[in-house]
Design a binder for these strands. Sequence first.
RNA 1: GGGCCGGUGGUCUAGCGGUGAGGACGCCGCGCUUACAACGCGGAGAUCGGCGGUUCGAAUCCGUCCCGGCCCA
Length: 894
Amino acid sequence: MSSPSLPTRFEPSALEARWQAEWERLAAFRAPTPPHAPIFSFVLPPPNVTGVLTLGHVLGGTVQDVLARHHRMRGEATLWLPGLDHAGLATQVEVRRRLAKQGVRLEELPREAALAEVERWKEEHERRIREQTRAAGFSVDWTRYRYTMDPASVRATRLAFVTLYRDGLIYRGERMVNWDPRLRTAISDLEVQHTEEEATLYTVRYAWADGTLGGIEVATVRPETIFGDVAVAVHPDDARYRDAVGRYVIVPLSHRRVPVVVDPAVDPTFGAGALKITPRHDPVDREIAERHPDLATPVEIFDDSARLTGEWVPAAYRGLDRDAARRRAVEELERERLIVRQESYRHAVGRSERSNAVVEPRLSTQWFVRMAPLAAPVVAAVRAEEIRIHPDRWTLTFFRWMEGIQDWCISRQVFWGHRIPVAHCRACGKPTVTVDAPTKCEHCGSTDLEPDPDVLDTWFSSWLWPFSALGWPEKTADLAQYYPTTVLVTAREIMFFWVARMMMAGYRFTGSRPFSDVVLTGLLLDPQGRKMSKHLGNSPEPLDLIRERGADALRLALIFPNPTTEDGPFRPTSLEGARNFLTKLWNLVRFSVAHVPPGTPPIAAPPALGGGSALENRWILSRFRHAVEEVDAALAAFEPTRAVSVLHNFVWHDLADRYVEISKEALGGRRGDPAQRESRATLVFVVERTLRLLHPFVPHVTEELWHALPHAGELLATAAWPAGSEAPADPVAEVEMELVLEAIRLLRNLRADEGVAPAATPPAWIRPAGPEVARVLEEQAGTIARLARVEPLALLAADAPAPSGAASRIAPVGECYVERPAAATGRSEALAREREKLSGLLEKTRARLSDPGFRARAPPELVREAEEKALDLAERIRRIDEHMKPGGSEPANA
RNA sequence: GGGCCGGUGGUCUAGCGGUGAGGACGCCGCGCUUACAACGCGGAGAUCGGCGGUUCGAAUCCGUCCCGGCCCA
């Protein structure tokens, strides 16, 4: 495909779809098998089927696509493996919500029908997610697409469970877990969100059991848990209760007798220093109760929906939910005058991430993974920098979490997910844990088996992803060749949920790191700095933005100008900026195409430049070389934002504003044929190579533009990444060009200050600062005159008198003069302003020099620099004074 | 309660021991100079959160306080 001439306007939508189709047709992103070294491989964090892709996904995807395309162009065997996560509980909640809108309760459907509903949901969302991924231009290898519930993943997940179980790292036991009473399942610690909330702290009096007056005052925010009390505890050193210990009190409302005990875990400063002990419904209480074995065995007072239940709960309260029970309990306690005090109280409340229900600590039998043994090798690996986290400051947070890691509750009382690969024997009661469903008990041989009713936490399949998606436990070619993977790019939010656990699983199951670099992306905020959320409706739909502005513009806007590593606002202005840049690029290439004669062969190398070569050509090639080096460095450090800003600056300012403007003369043939040929070759080389550099960021438009230029190969997507070494570094040209640009800037300043008409070309003069500068300015006088729009431009000898009737500016390059228009009146203020600035600087520099400590301790080179600077500043001020003096070059306009 | 990160022109940000503190957006002035008004040229605007310290020298290091955000309990 080729587009010989480019349309005047850049219209992204048609062009993007066309190239997406073409990339797929040519299998451009198919990872090679068998691959050749080196390898660059990674998994796309499989999006949850819960919804569709958000802007945050597009941000992460863009960072990944930049890396994938960059490495692919560098000739590495690149695999970017896409997939989808079944997102167990989260998806079930969504499906349940959708059904509820139709008046159907998910729980009331037969299991098969419920599964069918989830399956329908998955199909719809999967289609949409794939469409979005394509529309964004992500170069994933669709032939390797995987799903966390596909048969291979099911097998991998079951095997992981069985292996850990056999190794003693998975156990089943009765533990205090976080219970979500709305979804009626256990959840893990990570799925609990703690927030500060306002509550009422009730101080309740527990009367002495022996009928003595008074009693003990207990503070609680949850009076409805009184029914579960087995004791009241005080701190052993608390003098107030010395006589109370060993006595009994009556639990209000339920009228049971419980003892007063001592325990060091009681905080004597909280309330009145006495704590009611409800071991089945509070982790601290449970610990205390365990230290006091003589206490009554606690009875559960909440059912799985957090409604009151059980023999300890009076009939009037049974069946009430915890909030209703609390209201009723408060009412009754008040009636009995047992509430001593009520005060408002802020405390942390744990809510379920999925249902937002207040989590109920609940003693329940669940499956757990022992985490400490899994975490140890990971901590060691990160310490040894076998795995690096970017930006590295997150390593600290990572360590803190890993070191305090708790066992992971992996069983969920829902239906959507991987079934726990365990069958319980009805005969001997023991579990049979096998990858394939067992036919008989492995302990007693009975065939009377009952499958474990629970499913696994969704992360229990995700943590295997880097290897399970490559085929593990089968010894597939992909696994052998592409594992360990290279990087993992993901949102910081799931560092603990996913990244840390993948590392643990990697070392445990494959004996090696799953990836060597973790690249964390920040959160996208709305223009007001708020988190994007469905609830606020401030989260734009990526496909809409792509339709409006194009995928390239969206991708660019997501990584520039705000850094991908930080939480930052996504603004419409970023999108406009991106579009403007792409338009600039489009027009730059249109200009270049117009200067490339038809039939020009593909550009293999920059033109060989010699002594007679144009300064601008030497300069732009040197600038290009820097750009390549900086982009390479930025990408190696996983900083796409830095890479883009280098390119943005290079394309817009160096290439378009300066190089193109300067070379128009040579390109137009006005400097002769050899000069025109050299400039054409330089232009097309730099532009073509720049398109390659930009391709990872904005793949569609660069692919389109590349085909409009002479090129070799089918696709830019698979073309070679430029090497900086292709272009010679030329520090001399860079210094000389700076002088030229400074002279142009000064003359333009003068024009603007003096109100020279835009179309006018007044005479101008420059007195160069020295013979070297004079040589450069002499050679480039034509360029300077043209870009500054002055005519004629004369160079003054050091001792020549200042031209009269001209405005002047003084700078390191020398003194510049532009004839003042006849209409101009008054003295230019620019010189005076300049003088003020310079004398301020001079003062500062002199102060530094007169400090004896500076001369004594600063590096001599620095002292010398400061001395030279002071001299130079003084000289420039002297000259300004000369110019401002009446009768000088700046006559007071009488 | 513990920890982490940040506070730089109006906004977003780069710099993280010696630079005349960069850039982008916005703002002001002038211009449709045939690649580009989705643009060009020029300009104004910051005592780098406050206070103390280390240093010849601090936006940059240390302490402390204030403000914002995040994570964990």
